[in-house]
């Protein structure tokens, strides 16, 4: 009776410890798809996720702004992820598709990021997260903060600040 216990007891806390350590070193990401690309945002930068909402188009707005949406009385700017990061060519022809809203950013002025399909929340060990390669096909890398190579695809971790930032010049009317 005591033997196995002796054997197991010391290993139990050790295992737990290892696990704890791993939990500590994992980061959680909200993932979503656009075209064949797979994206993620750190979970703490995402406020909520919404199904397709009515978008009111804003004439003269920068091209990446699809319009404005009403989120429980708060009016948010809806940014089309594909347009924003330069994915457009691969997305053309799907203009009619109702996109999902990832509400993100600071609480004072959140924005809605329009994405094609919402994925799961993924936990990823920190050590698997890599810095941005020089080039990712079809994407402006200034909007990418990190990447993570998964088994079958590349998770592109977006830079929410760059996405949200109203770049001078693009925001004006023509």
């Amino acid at each position: 009776m005591t033997k196995p216990a002796d054997k197991n007891l010391p290993s139990m806390p050790e295992k737990a410890q290892v696990k704890d350590l791993r939990v500590n070193e994992q980061r959680q990401f909200v993932t979503f798809y656009f075209g064949r690309h797979f994206f993620g945002l750190p979970i703490d930068e995402v406020i909520e996720i919404n199904k397709a909402l009515d978008i009111t188009p804003v004439p003269l707005a920068p091209g990446y702004v699809s319009g404005v949406i009403n989120l429980r009385g708060q009016i948010l700017t809806a940014i089309n992820l594909a347009e924003r990061i330069g994915l457009v060519s691969q997305w053309e022809g799907n203009g009619e598709v109702r996109l999902n809203n990832v509400i993100m950013g600071n609480r004072e002025e959140p924005v809605s990021l329009l994405v094609e399909k919402i994925g799961d929340v993924m936990s990823i060990p920190v050590e698997k997260i890599e810095s941005v390669p020089d080039m990712i096909q079809g994407i402006d890398t200034k909007y990418v903060s990190q990447v993570c190579k998964l088994k079958d695809q590349l998770l592109i971790i977006l830079n929410s600040q760059a996405l949200e930032e109203a770049s001078a010049g693009t925001s004006g009317a023509n």
Partner: peptide, 10 residues
Amino acid sequence: LGSHLKNIPV
């Protein structure tokens, strides 16, 4: 209007 749209004068 949000910061992306503030500069549209109309």
